[in-house]
């Protein structure tokens, strides 16, 4: 966010030239610059409160822990899931939870992105925060019968955490994603459940 407000070098160049020009203009320019900086500072403060990575693909590797090949493989699997079942699974690695609890952060991110179809609430987010050593599977209400709490806990406990403890972050994410995908691909579609 802050990079948006950084001034490009040519502007500084011109400002320095102007500052060399005599008289009151020098003061005016400086005052204006200070006022502008203060104003932008005010703008930047609330914007820095909580920022989310952009929803660019099914896998958003902000923490940069996944090798490109693994990321491509995951993306293919998740795209396949959406094509077959229309559910959405997003896999996110974040560089920081920005002081929020992982539960809170994941839910806010899932709502901010709008993962899953609105009326079915069938989105799932697998979020990994390597810095904070936290992992969470957030399940939309529509899929809670398919991916129950015990099932998610089991996936984290038996598939993901053992690999993470061996420092195999990629393997853990892949194993977790495979388990979730297997479960979602095997489940009956929501549309039929609703019609009956």
């Amino acid at each position: 966010m802050s990079s948006t407000y950084a001034f490009p070098p040519p502007f500084w160049g011109r400002a320095r030239e102007r500052r060399l020009s005599p008289g009151a203009r020098r003061g005016t320019v400086r005052t204006l610059l200070i006022a502008l900086a203060l104003f932008l500072g005010l703008l930047a403060l609330p914007a820095a409160a909580q920022t989310f990575p952009k929803f660019t693909n099914f896998v958003v590797d902000q923490a940069d822990i996944l090798p490109p090949a693994a990321e491509a493989r995951l993306n293919a699997g998740l795209a396949d899931l959406q094509r077959k079942t229309r559910h959405q699974l997003a896999i996110v690695t974040v560089s920081s939870l920005q002081g929020y609890s992982i539960n809170d952060y994941t839910l806010r991110l899932a709502r901010f992105w709008g993962v899953g179809r609105r009326h079915y609430d069938d989105g799932v987010v697998l979020l990994v925060a390597p810095k904070e050593h936290k992992v969470r599977i957030e399940v939309g209400y529509g899929l809670e019968a398919t991916l129950t709490d015990p099932r998610c806990a089991e996936i984290i406990r038996n598939r993901i955490v053992p690999r993470f403890e061996r420092n195999d972050l990629t393997g853990g994410i892949q194993a977790g994603a495979d388990a979730i995908l297997a479960r979602l691909n095997a489940a009956a579609p929501l549309e039929k459940a609703r019609a009956s």
Partner: peptide
């Protein structure tokens, strides 16, 4: 306020 979370 603090629901338990999983650590690894």
């Amino acid at each position: 306020q603090s629901a338990p979370t999983v650590n690894f």
